[in-house]
Write a protein that binds this DNA or RNA. Structure first.
Length: 331
DNA sequence: TTCCCGTAGG
DNA sequence: CCTACAGGAA
């Protein structure tokens, strides 16, 4: 198929939010099959320092349409997908886009990227980093509120956070999920940014991953949104789950499902055209919140169930699978 | 009570 | 692999 070009682009997002939101679509039946094959690949984050210095104009992201109207000369390095794309993936993607355009999922409200989009580049990047950190396991409105309070108190920059009291940070970000640990991580991150990056945030994936509380999911999000430099796909639990249900990813040379988001990311990057790397996250997150839910997915209202190997097959409910910890003990 | 779900740490 | 972390929701 056609090779992806590369490009930076706005938006993507993550977090989860969790308010309700319905989405009614059409109905279909089931059936589907799969065949995939992945190979292993590495693909390493490139230097990227080269071109970014000054952030492109990213502002408004709203991933909504991501009219990649501008494509950077993001030299096509070796990152192009090399694996065999799963059958019908384009139809499936289009079908999901249609379902997603009908109603809004919680993710549509998005909060973390817009944080500080009116700030100067450096401050904006720092805000993106902090927003990402706070957003995990936290509803968007809660994250947004925390960011607002930090901003109002002048605590959305490395130097001020570094000087601030951890208890103060904790109080301001409450009630985001894991606020105690996040407050501590914010202090550490602020100090690192101040000491090593002149108050800016790290500009490479590797360096972002060294920050406490920043793992692969957030690091890719920050590269995408903060630096407008797409090094990889931001794979969260929704992307991980849905790609496996669709048969879009598998362990190298086998048909087994991938077992971790990182494994999913590598498998997905083998074939998904790069222009989809950023939009795939908000697309599948929203789809995962409304239709392809973790348990009891609404296959009946999914327009692409015809192409999904897992459609109508998730019986779940039975404790036979994993989850033996408390169960086996009790039984 | 169990699940949600990203990261750290055992 | 497993559990802690916070707290909301099923």
């Amino acid at each position: 198929m056609r090779n992806p070009a590369s490009e930076p682009n706005p938006g993507s997002e993550s977090s989860n939010g969790g308010s309700a939101s319905e989405l009614r679509v059409f109905v279909r039946k089931k059936r589907g099959r799969k065949t995939i094959e992945t190979q292993e690949t590495k693909y390493e984050a490139e230097p990227l320092d080269q071109k970014l210095r000054g952030p492109p104009e990213i502002e408004e992201f709203g991933y909504k349409q991501v009219n990649g109207s501008f494509q950077s000369s993001n030299t096509s390095f070796a990152n192009v997908p090399t694996g065999e794309p799963p059958p019908n993936w384009e139809k499936v993607l289009e079908g999901i886009r249609k379902m997603r355009s009908t109603e809004d999922a919680p993710v549509d409200t998005m909060g973390c990227e817009k944080a500080g989009n009116s700030l100067p580049p450096k401050e904006r990047r720092f805000a993106v980093l902090v927003s990402s950190l706070l957003s995990s396991q936290t509803k968007d409105n809660v994250t947004h509120g925390a960011i607002q309070r930090l901003l109002q108190n002048g605590l959305l920059a490395a130097d001020t956070i570094d000087k601030a009291d951890e208890a103060t940070i904790k109080g301001l970000i409450y009630p985001v999920g894991f606020y105690t640990r996040k407050a501590a991580n914010m202090k550490k991150i602020a100090n690192i940014c101040l000491m090593k990056y002149d108050g800016d945030i790290p500009s490479s994936l590797e360096e972002l991953l060294l920050l406490p509380g920043i793992g692969p999911k957030m690091a890719h999000l920050v590269m995408n949104v903060g630096w407008n430099n797409v090094q990889g796909i931001c794979v969260d639990t929704h992307v991980h789950r849905i790609c496996n249900r669709l048969g879009w990813v598998s362990k190298s040379c086998t048909k087994q499902k991938t077992s971790t988001p990182e494994e999913t990311r590598e498998a997905l990057q083998l074939w998904l055209p790069k222009e989809e790397w950023v939009p795939i996250n908000p697309l599948l997150v929203g789809f995962g919140q409304t239709v392809c839910t973790p348990l009891r997915p609404n296959c009946g209202m999914c327009s692409v169930s015809d192409f999904c190997p897992s459609a109508f097959r998730e019986i779940s409910r039975s404790p036979s699978k994993s989850k033996r910890s408390s169960l086996s003990k009790k039984l």
